[in-house]
């Protein structure tokens, strides 16, 4: 075990050293290949120019290589694979797309994903905003924020265990050790097997993600709220607006941009939700979502890369508008600089 840690540490040191060596050596080599002679001013300036042309690519090289191999190429390859059969060998046209369109489980997944998209970003943003407003007004607000933010650090799998324990069901007259069923019994209801309750079980899974992500929304929105100029709020107070009006008519409109960012970030996360469904139900009892269905088809019956690729493309299509919006936003920001 210690040997394994030592080897990991060795890799870190060696990796960092190799990286540093690459940048240092390539820089030296470039300078040596294109010398700047003292006497020959024309050659010196030509070589300096050549260096300036090549050097950015030396700096960018490793990053671009990683991006190309691990992101750009696979995206294109997945797109192409979606037109091929399960082994990726024979062209089948739109057969995989047609399959998806008529597949009940695929439609179930789309429906569930839409359900997640409708509930989770809205719930996180709303709760995050409310908690940000409340905690900004009390002296122990930062402590409260830390506690609510903490689930962000917990893995989806860890969170699933935590919540599975809350939803735990025990049959017959046994003591309910799951908090939810204990509460239900205490107020006189019948304990339920929450995660296999059709349709509603989706919401019990969503609760986990909401629990994790509300802190994120709260932190971002709290920073935005603090950025609101005092004067706008003071002016509203002088005009006789009450707290409710100030919140909805003065504060919220000024942070629309941030709300949009929070909403879209959580939307992307929701589209990729995988771990929670895998660990809670593995898609059983009608809880399947696209990312899990895709993973399932990757290995089901030896794997079907065509169908799997189609499902991945649907997720990709859903994030594309957000991607374009982000790129536009980034371009506009660069224009400002």
């Amino acid at each position: 075990m210690l040997a394994q840690i030592a080897s990991a540490m060795g890799v870190v040191v060696a990796g960092v050293f190799a990286c540093a060596l690459y940048y240092w050596l390539s820089d030296k080599l470039l300078s040596a290949a294109l010398p700047v002679p003292e006497g020959d001013a024309r050659k010196a300036s030509a070589n300096l120019n050549r260096r300036a042309t090549i050097r950015p690519w030396l700096f960018l090289g490793p990053a671009l290589l990683l991006l190309a191999v691990y992101l750009v190429y696979p995206v294109i390859a997945t797109f192409i694979l979606s037109f091929y059969d399960r082994s990726g060998g024979n062209f089948v046209g739109f057969a995989n797309y047609r399959w998806a369109f008529f597949d009940a489980q695929f439609r179930q997944s789309i429906f569930n994903n839409i359900l997640w998209l409708a509930v989770v970003p809205a719930a996180c943003t709303f709760l995050g905003l409310v908690i940000a407003v409340l905690t900004d007004r009390i002296w122990w607000g930062n402590l409260a924020k830390s506690l609510i933010f903490m689930p962000m650090a917990i893995s989806f799998v860890g969170a699933s265990v935590i919540w599975k324990f809350i939803y735990e069901f025990r049959g017959g007259n046994e003591t309910q050790i799951g908090l939810l069923n204990a509460i239900v019994r205490a107020i006189g209801g019948d304990p339920q097997v929450w995660i296999s309750l059709p349709f509603w079980n989706n919401f019990f899974l969503m609760a986990i993600l909401i629990w994790i992500q509300t802190g994120f929304a709260m932190v971002i929105l709290s920073a935005a709220l603090r950025g609101i100029p005092e004067e706008t709020v003071e002016a509203a107070v002088i005009d006789g607006a009450n707290g409710w009006q100030i919140f909805w008519k003065i504060m919220v409109p000024q942070i629309w941009g941030t709300i949009a960012v929070v909403w879209t970030t959580i939307t992307i996360l929701v589209l990729k939700v995988f771990d929670i469904v895998l660990t809670m139900t593995n898609g059983q009892w009608n809880t399947m979502v696209l990312a899990n269905l895709m993973f399932d088809w990757m290995f089901r019956g030896g794997g079907d890369s065509g169908r799997s690729a189609v499902i991945a493309l649907v997720i990709m299509a859903a994030v594309t508008p957000i991607m374009i919006w982000n790129i536009r936003q980034a371009n506009r920001d660069m224009g400002d600089h």
Partner: peptide, 9 residues
């Protein structure tokens, strides 16, 4: 924002 799912296969 590219979903990991796009890259796995």
């Amino acid at each position: 924002v590219v979903p990991l799912q796009m890259t796995l296969i």
